[in-house]
Design a protein around this nucleic acid. Sequence first.
DNA 1: GTAGTCCTTGACGTCGGCGTCAAGGCAAGG
DNA 2: CCTTGCCTTGACGCCGACGTCAAGGACTAC
Lengths: 139, 139
Amino acid sequence: MRIGELAERAGTTTRTLRYYESRGLLQARRAENGYRTYDEGDLRMVRQIRTLQDFGFDLEETRPFVDCLRAGHPAGDSCPASLAVYRRKLGELDTLIGQLQSVRTEVGAQLARAELEASAEVPGGPEPRCELNREDEDR
Amino acid sequence: MRIGELAERAGTTTRTLRYYESRGLLQARRAENGYRTYDEGDLRMVRQIRTLQDFGFDLEETRPFVDCLRAGHPAGDSCPASLAVYRRKLGELDTLIGQLQSVRTEVGAQLARAELEASAEVPGGPEPRCELNREDEDR
DNA sequence: GTAGTCCTTGACGTCGGCGTCAAGGCAAGG
DNA sequence: CCTTGCCTTGACGCCGACGTCAAGGACTAC
């Protein structure tokens, strides 16, 4: 199959496939006329890459999976190097999720505090005080 | 104070402050010699921006907070527009955290499955099968 | 005067993962 | 023959938040 069909069957674009090739993830045979030629194994590789990218893996992280498939293994994650990437990713995800949760907590607290002060200001409070402290201005 | 001191006191760089100015977030007065001049209010604005960026807000999202400070309010989140940004951000965070958690679950499941198959392969299993199905190759 | 440190504007570089355009080759149908 | 639709390589564009370099002006200290 040629690049257009591979792109369509993998749910991506020809540009993306050529980009993968430029990164050394995909290796195409060439027909006599110079066209790239792919087989079902290539389709599996591309699908593996796409799946991992959907998970938020960046391209370099998909390389072990692709290498694993190219080595003839039945799945991209049949190799130790792929499992190592999985594990590293899990750690990164846990860290990131934790950070986001603490940010969420902080932002939530800020919102609650700001809403409180706003409601304390409205029901008869003073106008918004529109002057700064002018004493200590130029350092 | 001049740009170098502001940068230092805000924990950032002069390049960053000029960038903020180019984005319209910061407005510097000019001394006779052309140097930018800042006051304590500017320092508060920069610190507000930095705090929000640490939370993962992008620059545009900090604009309402800066505008609020410039309008003379005591805090950057004393204005409704800022509260709206807080709320929107909370929603985005919840969505993102949820997505990451489901990814985490999926990756964890993949890892567990792959580890199982690997352990089923090792203790006397066959060599890694290094041939692909060749029948249905060229589509 | 001159060395050193600050400041100025302008412009190009970075990173990832492509999008998009340009200019042209190849194959098939009418 | 001509159009259409695929394919080729090459190269610039994009986004965000700056980093980094260049060339030169301003001010201070000695």
